[in-house]
Design a protein around this nucleic acid. Sequence first.
DNA 1: GTGAAAGCGCTAACAC
DNA 2: GTGTTAGCGCTTTCAC
Lengths: 339, 339
Amino acid sequence: MVTVHDVARVAGVSISTVSRALATPEKVADATRDRVQAAARELGYRPNRAAAVLRAGRSGAYGLVVPDLANPYFAAVAKGAQERARERGAGLFIVDTDEDPDLEAEAIGALAPQTDGVVLCSPRAPARALDALGGRPVVLINHDVDGVPAVEADHRGGMRRALEHLRALGHHRIAYVGGPEASWSDRRRRAGLADASARYDDVEIVALGAFRPQVEGGQAAADLVVASGATAVITFNDLVAVGLVDRLRARGLDVPDDLSVVGCDDSYVASLVTPPLTTLHVDLRRLGRLAVDRLVATVPGRGAGTGAGVAPDVPVLDVELVVRASTAPPAADRPEGAL
Amino acid sequence: MVTVHDVARVAGVSISTVSRALATPEKVADATRDRVQAAARELGYRPNRAAAVLRAGRSGAYGLVVPDLANPYFAAVAKGAQERARERGAGLFIVDTDEDPDLEAEAIGALAPQTDGVVLCSPRAPARALDALGGRPVVLINHDVDGVPAVEADHRGGMRRALEHLRALGHHRIAYVGGPEASWSDRRRRAGLADASARYDDVEIVALGAFRPQVEGGQAAADLVVASGATAVITFNDLVAVGLVDRLRARGLDVPDDLSVVGCDDSYVASLVTPPLTTLHVDLRRLGRLAVDRLVATVPGRGAGTGAGVAPDVPVLDVELVVRASTAPPAADRPEGAL
DNA sequence: GTGAAAGCGCTAACAC
DNA sequence: GTGTTAGCGCTTTCAC
């Protein structure tokens, strides 16, 4: 293993100069810096992270906690976060908690001490999670706690867009198939929907809920939706929409002819299924990237530059409506044989 | 921060006894062990990983390199690997290389020195990857290099099953839509297909190829498949199958009426799309878990127990055919109106 | 601008 | 069975 000593010997300087030339090049004479960097490159020197961590107290690695990596939503966020961490030369531990609050707390307890900070994506037990962190730097994705830095998507705006789209098509009774009880996103969506519907006295919302955020959740919800008399439905996420469509089909109902369906997230399954889903698009990769940026800015040691502390505002990513084939005017509005 | 010194003071022993009581309890008197463990618990002691790493040269963390986390195949493998690493009390760095061989080599170079070993899943530039590892412990998933430990799926057997299924339905001209040039899985599948077809003189394989392992790859392949005169097609993975079906539909062709389609991997999209895909199932999570187990067995320090070294054989996971709605007898074989 | 030296917290010889 | 001690490779004062 090549150490600072080897580099120092080759470059003809002391080990402290090597350390400086590599970590803070501006504090070293140009000629020295070049010599050291050349030697390091030549020898294939790679700083030993463990030693640096031990000494400096910073690990250069972050954590990301997600409920389920197999969910395309979290996979996309993880991908973005990982990408950004790599660009910044940091490592990223990704932990999948399997939607289990106990595992979540445990994982955070294990992760926190060996990272410089953690991104918590859609925590299932936020209070315990923050507790397990013991005051270490953290950024929340899709959650909201007093003074904790966060990054979120504009769920309310998204819901308004979905509702206005359906209303424009002529729907007046719209069901919402909600996600997990503990989901903050779900609460925001319900609130957004309530707000938006309050602006139009010709639209009524039927909120259903607490369904699993997977295909099965949608299957379970379908019959309730049909019974509700709604002509259109908005679902917690795309997977739920897929399950819903599946069950409707099995009952001989057509989407969008008998019922219009709007998904959420625009994960790539939305465009894969039949019919392709009208859905709310969020740039999930960007969400992950932003969270890492924000986390890095929060961590004391390397405060990205300005050292101005962390801006207290929460970046909110736009949520856009993507119209595909799963929404159409309600059957009653259509002239025989049209669209 | 609570250190061994604090625990030692409270327990009334020396720091080395603390270290032993925690790491190798059997080498310490029962009473002492209890006292130390009680003190540690009471103080909320958490060993500083960085220090342990620095001293012991083992990091307790592994790496997993995948081409694309957003691909459900790799997401499932990652999930399994992560799960297993956690069960073993180890960390797992997951790195996504975006299908880029340069990034792959770079990521491995950065990962290797700070982990105890790396799992390489479907490496895109295996030679460079192994080179970048510099002889560190490694386990390959879906690849094959002389003496390097690996875990793989029985692609050949899978291909045989797919072919026999299609042949039993009455197909005699079968196309294969291949994946990336550099893909080892692709080569194995081609070989398996060639072997299997050699056993039946009434089956002919039309191998097409080098398509991207995503939906677009399938879309790009569709017209070639149609032109090939095949009545059935096997694709590199499920996403390719989805793209293929999509493009066939756009051309007014029906699956399975005009063409039967078999996917590969049984990622969850296979059951989501219309028609649900007949596909080859592999237990991807298990693949990830097995790879971690194997890696742990390879690493010298903690050699899971027996110390017998690593078994040289490569565990091969079964590949099973899952029949769904995308395969049927060829149109010519069907009586008017049947099935 | 550069070097000498002191540890960060832990483990593993080595004595006892 | 337990304590003493010497570092692991690095960063960071503190002198010069």
